[in-house]
Design a protein around this nucleic acid. Structure first.
Lengths: 194, 194
DNA sequence: ACACAATACGGAGTCACACTCCGCTTCCCC
DNA sequence: GGGGAAGCGGAGTGTGACTCCGTATTGTGT
């Protein structure tokens, strides 16, 4: 059989540029947050802006490509939780923590993720959908054992995580608000074990 | 005695321009959200950009001026709640609803408010501080009667409200997520009456 | 009523960033 | 190693934030 429909093999220079841009963008977004200047990324990568935009037509596309690696890692984490966490509420909690870490990967990341939730054309949209589906899985399991409020949905919890991550983005290093808000959120959806 | 230090009386044209800019900005921000183009506001108001920036040196200053009117209204609401709501938890809840309405006044308003919380130089900063103080008042009263978790602070609840408002900013009209998140938040900080 | 500071105005100008377009280069296959 | 397709660079365009200074408007003292 052939290599499959998904990888028509790239020209060498294209592939080289693409991965180099991603490296540079990774570093740049880590320093400046996801709303830093794209032209600067191109300059730092030693390519023209045209090249950057040909590879990643929008900022969201670039972010999506960067998140791809972490995406796989996140779903590994999900599998681990599913495998060795018998307590359904605790499992859901751990999954939400994982999601939180994911959406805190870069400064300002929650914003495009939130937007993507309501624009199906965004390259981040399907990513978000997957997160919601996974969340829904953990949530339903917890609800079946009466360990989560039955009036919440996966979508709501995902938005809650995003909102918490959004707040953290501006929180001072010594401020405990992010932790408190996570606790409020958790106390809100969870039903304590009997 | 003289008119006092606070109002050195403005030149007629200055006063006229200032209030006209505010009218236009009010309408424009209502349509486009608080991150719309300032130059466009100047154009619509029939003044040069210089005039707009002389009156309101930053976007935050303009927003702050616009919020001033609603600010008074909000604190009236606080007084009403304080006067005729004997249930301390319900009083806090109503106050948080008022804050939520306030921070939903314009599209995108939660963002500058959040930023202002961590930049004391912002003209919105003192506004935020007042909100937190007021929230703290309701919260402490509720905590004294064991109707609110003792590990939350006014600042946390304010941030929680902002976060909820932030989510609502992108929510589809028929989506109930905003309401659910508010409920999660409430369930999180509140302790049911015995 | 008038002149003359003082004050405020307007809009052209600068800078930074997003994003496009096309002549030229590089690659790959025969 | 030749030729056509694929990709590249960077100059160019458009928009928005924000400044600067010559000009117009205002209020006041005479």
């Amino acid at each position: 059989m052939t290599a499959g429909t998904s990888a028509p093999r790239m020209r060498a220079d294209k592939e080289r540029n693409r991965s180099h841009i991603l490296e540079v963008a990774q570093e740049f977004f880590s320093e400046e947050g996801v709303s830093g200047s794209l032209d600067t990324i191109a300059k730092r990568a030693g390519v023209g802006p045209g090249t950057l935009y040909r590879h990643f037509p929008t900022r969201e596309a670039l972010i999506a490509a960067l998140l791809q690696a972490r995406y796989d890692e996140l779903f590994d984490r999900r599998d681990v939780i599913e495998r060795d966490e018998p307590d359904t509420a605790r499992a859901l909690e751990r999954w939400l923590e994982a999601l939180y870490d994911y959406s805190t990967a870069f400064d300002g990341l929650p914003e495009p993720l939130r937007v993507a939730l309501f624009e199906e054309s965004s390259p981040l949209a399907t990513t978000c959908e997957n997160f919601i589906t996974a969340t829904e899985g953990f949530l339903v399991a917890a609800q079946r054992e009466n360990r989560a409020q039955e009036w919440v949905r996966g979508r709501d919890l995902f938005l809650g995580v995003l909102a918490t991550a959004w707040v953290s983005g501006a929180v001072l290093a010594d401020d405990s608000s992010a932790a408190v808000l996570q606790a409020v959120h958790k106390t809100g959806w969870m039903i304590p074990a009997t």
